[in-house]
Amino acid sequence: MADAKVIPFGEEPRARRSPTGGRRQHAKDGATKRPQGPGQGPGQGAGRKAGPLAPVPEPQETEPRTPGPRTSDERTSDERTSDEWTSDEQVAEARGAEQEPEPDGEAVREQGGGRGWERRIAGGLAFLRRRVTGDYEVDEFGYDEELTDQVLMSLIRPLYENYFRVEVKGIENIPSDGGALVVANHSGTLPLDGLMMQVAVHDNHPADRHLRLLAADLVFMLPVVNELARKAGHTLACAEDAEALLQRGEVVGVMPEGFKGLGKPFSERYKLQRFGRGGFVSTALRAGVPIVPCSIVGAEEIYPMIGNARTLARLLGVPYFPITPTFPLLGPLGALPLPTKWTIQFGEPIPTDGYPPEAAEDPMLMFNLTDQVREQIQHTLYKLLVQRRSVFF
Rank of each mutant, 00 (worst) to 15 (best):
R23C: 08
T32S: 11
P35S: 13
G41T: 06
A46C: 00
A54I: 00
E58C: 05
S72D: 09
T76N: 03
T81Y: 05
S82P: 05
T86Q: 14
E89I: 07
A94G: 00
A94L: 08
R109V: 11
R109N: 07
Q111D: 08
G112N: 13
G112M: 14
G113A: 15
R115V: 13
R119L: 10
L125N: 01
A126V: 03
R131I: 06
R131G: 09
V132F: 13
T133C: 02
G142M: 05
D149M: 03
M153A: 10
M153D: 12
E161G: 03
G170S: 03
I174W: 14
V182C: 12
H186P: 06
Q198F: 08
N204T: 15
H205G: 09
P206H: 10
H210N: 07
D217N: 10
V219M: 12
V219A: 13
F220L: 09
L222T: 10
E227H: 15
L228H: 06
K231W: 03
A232L: 06
L245W: 12
P265E: 01
E268C: 04
G276T: 09
R277A: 14
G278M: 04
G288S: 08
C294D: 03
Y303D: 00
I306V: 15
A309Q: 07
L312H: 02
T324W: 07
F327D: 05
F327Q: 03
G334I: 04
A335Y: 04
F346C: 00
P349G: 10
P357K: 14
E361M: 03
V373R: 04
H379W: 04
K383D: 06
R389M: 00
